[in-house]
Design a protein around this nucleic acid. Structure first.
Lengths: 200, 200
DNA sequence: CCTACCGATCGGTAGG
DNA sequence: CCTACCGATCGGTAGG
């Protein structure tokens, strides 16, 4: 399906994702958005009910993408380190494939109405819980160090995969798989040389 | 110096940091800001030249804080792993002590005018360079694994320390030192149990 | 999907 | 620091 054959509504959402990510939600006017699509401002309302509907839909779609990527891993029968690597790969892939909506997701969710806001908070909690459970599993089955704090470990992993929205460049030399493998290698094996050099 | 004895201009900047971080730059009106300080909208302009001046100053102060924290470490004669731990501690402390301006820094810099925007970009590059050099030093002196890619390693470290602006809670049970030590232990030593359990 | 329009609100200023 | 105001722009609507 070429860009111009997409349903008008999908085109509007694509443009909105790009403009909201580049300029921010409040700094993007409905006339800016309409102009991108060769329309007049008022014409948008034949396709959507309002500006906030766009934000809600962008954020919801992004949440779903993360959910679908990670949820099927939850019960997977894999060793914890392999599962962590695969989760990071999928997570980074969602970010990399949706740089605009990921940016909107991380920056603009504070502008949502209370109900939509609560949904995003709930989603965040479920992703946190996914990583914490994964770490706990790995600690219990002996794959991970016993002194790990699942909460801090989950924060560290989430930092790595989420922050990618600020620096990853689709079409560049690094694939999501490259990034995930690099990060997972460092996280799992540690940065320090083995054996550790003697402290002078 | 109590809050009310601070120069008016400093009070304005504090309130602006909080409002910009909570609601975003464009969603905060000058009347919102004035109201926080018990003023009328127009009265702000006796103290400042315009809205963007506030954003520029908040971002500049934040940049300076990061610079001052990290620059003195650059030439420090420490082993690379200790230096990394100390850099992470200082970096997280700046974030933790300035949660509002850090949030503004990470979210609102896209709204700066071209000159201020360029300054922020330059700053980002210098922080990146700091961490890359630190990694390179550690690889060369044998403290870090030889197969590390300084660029990816710097991204991983920066992810951990920057992302703290999304979840750290000042006044909570974790100090910046706790967070930095936890992250540094995991990053330097790795998550995997040693010796590694046999793969089934 | 367009034209023409609505009330509301914006950042900023003049004059005191 | 306030009152009163400016032009510009906002999201959204009516009628076609």
């Amino acid at each position: 399906m070429t860009e111009s054959s997409k349903p008008r509504r999908a085109q509007i959402l694509d443009s909105a994702s790009r403009l909201f990510s580049e300029r921010g939600y409040h700094a993007t006017s409905m006339r800016d958005l309409a102009g991108e699509l060769g329309m007049q401002g008022g014409s948008l309302y034949a396709h959507i009910s309002g500006k906030e509907e766009l934000l809600i839909e962008i954020v919801n779609v992004a949440s779903q993408q993360f959910d679908e990527a990670l949820f099927t891993l939850r019960a997977a029968d894999m060793r914890a380190d392999d599962k962590l690597r695969e989760a990071m790969h999928r997570h980074i892939r969602v970010v990399a494939d949706n740089m605009d909506s990921a940016t909107v997701f991380f920056h603009e969710w504070k502008h949502l109405s209370p109900e939509a806001y609560a949904r995003v908070t709930g989603w965040r909690d479920s992703i946190d819980a996914f990583y914490r459970e994964l770490i706990t599993q790995g600690v219990e089955d002996g794959t991970f160090r016993r002194d790990l704090d699942p909460r801090m470990t989950a924060y560290l992993v989430l930092s790595a995969v989420n922050w990618a929205y600020t620096w990853y460049r689709p079409g560049g030399p690094l694939t999501p798989r490259n990034v995930a493998d690099s990060f997972a290698d460092m996280l799992l094996g540690g940065l320090r040389a083995v054996p550790e050099p003697p402290r002078p």
